[in-house]
């Protein structure tokens, strides 16, 4: 890992109320790389993104982005920090009452005083990058899932962020849209010179585009490495995840009393 990572989480713990989500969590996102965080649902992946974006604060440990402690920033500092971050939400989270164009222009208009002609040029540049220049006047409800994701991606990169976060960018997409979005994530990251974090469980697509992968389970990192490391990994959890096996460390059965006993008890109750 490089000496000066863009994002560093050191010994982070976090709990919603009393339910622990992360504990003793360590992670580094090097500059210029695309890093994936994988794991089963409910394992704390999205929480990691929220910690980095400062939407939730860690109960202990350090969250450092570009040399600043995110968990200690006040609102003003946090908002200044977020202008340099872009985030793509699970289903795009486009503003439903605005056209695609206005969605992408939103952040530019909110944070800068650029003349409308320049806003237009910038927005069209971003829309062109995701191949949606022709859809600028459409409303989000008229877009297909893949197009909505690309429009949201254009919105996320509107201010040329240093860090782009993706929350389940592949969820619910057809194979073609999925490949398009995957390709865009990689090319945009390299073109902008940004760093990217992808939270996903789409293992095959992400192995193609990412530089480094963290596996998260039960609030801890259980494995990490490059795509090749992960493919070769013999850690049971990773192996099960990569090859999609139904049984393994993550059991098929939800913990339950034995089926035989349950039937017997049911029969007894029926009498």
């Amino acid at each position: 890992m490089s000496a000066d990572p863009l994002v560093r989480l050191t010994d982070v713990s976090f709990a919603y109320d009393t339910r622990p989500i992360l504990s003793g969590f360590n992670m580094q996102i090097p500059r210029g790389k695309v890093v994936a965080i994988m794991g089963i649902s409910g394992g704390g992946k999205t929480t990691t993104l929220r910690l980095i974006g400062g939407q939730v604060k860690a109960s202990s440990g350090e969250v450092v982005v570009a040399g600043q402690r995110v968990d200690q920033l006040d609102d003003k500092g946090l908002y200044a920090m977020r202008r340099r971050m872009g985030m793509l939400f699970q289903f795009g989270a486009l503003f439903t009452d605005m056209s695609v164009f206005d969605n992408v222009a939103y952040q530019i208009r909110e944070h800068t005083d650029l003349p409308e002609s320049l806003v237009r040029d910038l927005v069209m540049l971003k829309l062109n990058a995701v191949g949606l220049a022709g859809a600028k006047d459409m409303m989000p409800s008229e877009l297909s899932g893949g197009m909505a994701r690309r429009a949201a991606l254009a919105r996320a990169i509107a201010l040329d962020p240093m860090l782009i976060m993706y929350d389940e960018p592949f969820a619910g997409l057809d194979p073609i849209s999925l490949a398009v979005v995957g390709h865009l994530i990689r090319t945009l990251n390299d073109a902008l010179g940004a760093s990217s974090i992808i939270v996903t469980h789409d293992i095959q697509e992400s192995l193609k585009i990412v530089d480094y992968i963290y596996f998260v389970s039960d609030g801890k990192i259980v494995a990490e490495g490059t795509a090749e490391d992960i493919r070769q990994s013999d850690i049971p959890y990773v192996h099960q995840f990569v090859w999609g096996e139904t049984d393994g460390p993550v059991a098929f059965q939800y913990p339950a009393p034995s089926y035989r006993q349950d039937i017997l008890r049911g029969a007894a109750r029926a009498q």
Binding site: G53, Q90, A93, F95, T96, Q107
Partner: peptide
Amino acid sequence: TEQLSAMEMMA
């Protein structure tokens, strides 16, 4: 639909 979260993340 996470539009509020998205807004927060856009500062």
